[in-house]
């Protein structure tokens, strides 16, 4: 069971959180202007990263806030947590 640091509440057990998949997927401004392929890319295609992965978590049994986590999908080590709208530490995205 992961130990996750909620940016607002601090370290808690994983069972308080819900997983939300890959982070930084921005909903297109004008979906109606996209081709089927472009829309499908937003809707379905994910990086499936092996290594450090930016992902969303929700502290559902706590403050109910969503935030971002950088987690290594091999070792499960959590590299960083940061709030929505913030860039991942160490640049990127």
């Amino acid at each position: 069971m992961l130990k996750i640091e909620c940016p607002w509440c601090g370290e808690r057990d994983q069972e308080e959180f819900q997983y939300g998949g890959e982070a930084h997927i921005v909903r297109p401004e004008r979906p109606d202007t996209l081709t089927d392929e472009q829309w499908a890319d937003y809707l379905f295609n994910r990086a499936n990263t092996k290594g450090v992965h930016a992902e969303q978590w929700c502290h559902g049994a706590g403050c109910r806030r969503w935030f971002n986590v950088l987690r290594d999908t091999v070792s499960y080590v959590i590299v960083a947590v940061y709030r929505p709208g913030e860039n991942p530490p160490g640049g990127g995205e």
């Binding site: 819900q18 939300g20 909903r27 969303q56 929700c58 559902g60 806030r65 969503w66 929505p84 709208g85």
Partner: peptide, 13 residues
Amino acid sequence: LTWMERWLQTEWP
């Protein structure tokens, strides 16, 4: 409720 909160917090803050 979780769905609505998520859109508000992550897409349309």
